[in-house]
Design a protein around this nucleic acid. Sequence first.
DNA 1: CGGAATCCTTGGGGATACTG
DNA 2: CAGTATCCCCAAGGATTCCG
Lengths: 113, 113
Amino acid sequence: MEVIYDDDIERCPVAKVQKVIRGKWSMVIIYFLSRETLQFSQLKRKMPQVTEANLTKELRMLEQYGLVHREIYREVPPRVEYSLTEIGQKFIPVLEALEHWALEYEHQEQLSQ
Amino acid sequence: MEVIYDDDIERCPVAKVQKVIRGKWSMVIIYFLSRETLQFSQLKRKMPQVTEANLTKELRMLEQYGLVHREIYREVPPRVEYSLTEIGQKFIPVLEALEHWALEYEHQEQLSQ
DNA sequence: CGGAATCCTTGGGGATACTG
DNA sequence: CAGTATCCCCAAGGATTCCG
């Protein structure tokens, strides 16, 4: 099922990691987890427009891709904390660059309206 | 049709610009255009797995969002060149950060296999 | 060359209800 | 609290054909 890239696009690193961050809420989740470790319900509260089912899915994907760590505390009531892995933390500069660009983009959009 | 974000996610700039770069090939297109102005057919050749119809769609979206400039030369045969706008060029640091991360990510994946 | 128009498929993501 | 389990839908994206 893997696409066979030709020489040109194969040299594009962006193409390779795209699937990792293309989930609708992936980057937002990483953004929030970059600031603090969060429990499921805390994360959910920050993203009310995401259903629990989908939030779970996205977290599982990010976990599979190795960006997010899931720590289970077997207490009563049970507690699960999500945090960034090492490679997940290394993604923060990307988010910062994106944030910076977002501000410039927003500013320009306001000018053109 | 616009989602009403609550206070938390509203402060997340990532969420705001996500739609701009979520096209499957958006970032790859920006990547290639960051290196050189390209004609439609040149871009197509670099991305053989994208159909012409979809490449057109993505380019139109990026044009709408203001990242890509489309210059038409009325010659025979007609020629159309795609390049990055100013705000499009300002996106390059994001790509560079992503590239850098992609290399670290790739390296880690190799270790874990 | 650089598309437009059409049709079709898929899976990402939404809504709802239930559970250890 | 932290999820599962379903069901469902639509729009993103692919394939194909035609055009100035």
